[in-house]
Design a protein around this nucleic acid. Structure first.
Length: 474
RNA sequence: GGUCCCAUCGUCUAGUGGCCCAGGACACCACCCUCUCAAGGUGGAGACACGGGUUCAAAUCCCGUUGGGACUACCA
């Protein structure tokens, strides 16, 4: 039987990197085994889900390079793939559970439940539903029924020790009674996550469930429901959570951690995928760089770490720079274009592409290309503070001499520009650092820029001369 | 409180009883290269949470402690 895995995000907000990391593992595992990967939208709590959020999740996945074989947009043999559209299926299966005696009506009101919880807590006994409605006599049942008292449907957990075998955690044992009877159908008739997930995984023939270990306790519950329904539970792999810098599980309060936010910062998808793959998994002791194909080829659930991993932005940025350096100039320029237009700049594509070689090792994100190359695409250049100091210190006489030297350069190429720059500096008794920095400041308006001769060559003779003469007071 | 999970450099990790007075990567420090900033090169500092066992031998196995985390909902 071929491997079938799924990724089932609850699109209540944006897809954050902790979630996609789990999705990535699930996807990589399926691809490694030549199996299918399913995208399923977990929206039993429909109130929190918007169309836009669902769309956003798919966008993020596409951008990262994770593609699915079955899902809400592409359909598939087990459609629909949105839980909110599958309520009839859940009711049908819930009914079967009742018939088999594996689910029962619970007439406890929220107030009663709350009181039971409070009482259990003060007495120091285990909290959680005590299963009292499971023991209701037929007479009591019909009495409640006649009252018209609302009821929820609870699943009756088998009353025995449960041994749960997890692909990442190993064997996990739960003593009899420690896993309480849980609600599968609310009193308003809506299904809960615990029912929906089990039913879907069974019906969609999922063979391996890869998800966060915050759901480890749901594993045996999901499996019990599937078994009660006569199905064979999938294998489960509960992977550890991704933590923030502070060691707490990653969440909104850690700032912009959504896939979309990284994209907007100029992180390239290759880098994010590579970084995420190594968060909680490793190929071996040495491997740091993995392409999508490498990942598929070598991914293995057995090498997923069992302890939680903290997200390290610095390492992501370092890796991003690594990938940027290796992108070809056309590709890189095309990717940077978006960030320029966002700042109201409209670079000439050819010039932008020609500038890539001198900035690629200098940017850790695509967005940084804008700051590095702004001087090329606008003549509205006001020297920053450090640049102004450099210009003032050098004096107009020196800058004028540089302008004069550059005036004779023909053709306007890197070698000729370098030579002229050196001639002017030497004549003034300055070394390169002393002689070039003021020129950099005058032309790029900054004390930091890509290599100077290359920058001037790209800018062109006319614009270079104009800026120098302006600053030199001519 | 109860149940469950987790514990190697600051961070991600290698390590499945001897190859480890613990290897790699990011970050950090120093030096080299150098027109600024980067990139690159070389070198350095830096960890087996603690306490008991088991064993000829333990980062690796067992128990306990401590510390994190999840669950304990008619949330997912």
């Amino acid at each position: 039987m071929s491997v079938r895995t799924r990724f089932a995000p609850a699109p209540s907000g944006s897809l954050h990197v902790g979630n996609v990391r789990t999705g990535l593992f699930s996807w990589a595992f399926a691809r490694h085994h030549g199996g299918e990967f399913i995208l399923r939208v977990e929206d039993t709590d429909a109130s929190r889900v918007t169309e836009q959020a669902v769309h956003g999740v798919m966008e993020s996945l596409h951008w990262l390079g994770i593609e699915w074989d079955e899902g809400p947009d592409v359909g598939g043999p087990h459609a629909p793939y949105r839980q909110s559209q599958r309520t009839a299926v859940y009711h049908e299966q819930a009914e079967r559970l009742v018939e088999r005696g594996d689910a029962y009506r619970c007439y406890c009101t929220p107030e009663e439940l709350e009181a039971q919880r409070a009482a259990a807590l003060t007495r120091g006994v285990p909290s959680g539903y005590d299963g009292r409605c499971r023991r209701l006599t037929a007479a009591e049942q019909s009495a409640f029924g006649r009252e018209g008292r609302p009821f929820a449907l609870r699943f009756a957990m088998p009353d025995r020790q449960i041994v749960f075998d997890d692909l990442v955690k190993g064997e996990v044992r739960f003593a009899a009674g420690s896993l309480r009877d849980f609600v599968i159908l609310r009193s308003d008739g809506s299904p809960t996550f615990l029912l929906a997930v089990a039913v879907d995984d069974m019906l969609m023939e999922v063979t391996h469930v890869v998800r966060g270990d915050d759901l480890l306790d749901s594993g045996p519950r999901n499996a019990a429901v599937i078994e009660a329904l006569g199905g064979t539970p999938p294998h489960y792999a509960h992977v550890p959570q991704v933590l923030g810098r502070d060691g707490k599980p990653l969440s909104k309060r850690h700032g912009s951690t959504s896939v979309e936010a990284f994209r907007e910062r100029g992180i390239v998808p290759e880098a994010l995928m590579n970084y995420l793959a190594l968060l909680g998994w490793s190929k071996d002791a040495e491997t740091t760089f993995l392409s999508k194909e490498d990942l598929i080829e070598s991914f293995d659930l057995s090498r997923v770490s069992s302890n939680p991993a903290a997200f390290d932005e610095k390492k992501l940025e370092w890796m991003n720079n690594h990938y940027i350096q290796r992108l070809d100039d056309d590709d890189l320029a095309a990717r940077c274009m978006h960030f320029f237009s966002e700042e109201g700049l409209l670079p000439e594509p050819k010039t932008l592409r020609e500038a890539m070689p001198i900035v690629k090792e200098r940017m850790t994100t695509l967005r940084e290309s804008v700051g590095l190359l702004r001087f090329l695409f606008t003549d509205d250049v006001e020297p920053n503070e450090r640049a102004a100091e450099l210009i003032a210190k050098a004096g107009t006489d020196y800058l004028r001499s540089v302008a004069d030297a550059l005036e004779t350069v023909d053709p306007w190429e890197v070698s000729g520009v370098t030579e002229a720059l050196d001639v002017a500096a030497t004549a003034a008794g300055l070394n390169r650092r002393e002689g070039w920095q003021p020129v950099r400041a005058a032309v790029t308006a900054s004390n930091v820029s890509p290599p100077l001769p290359e920058s001037l060559a790209l800018l062109g003779k006319e614009r270079t001369m104009t800026r120098l003469r302006a600053v030199a007071g001519q």
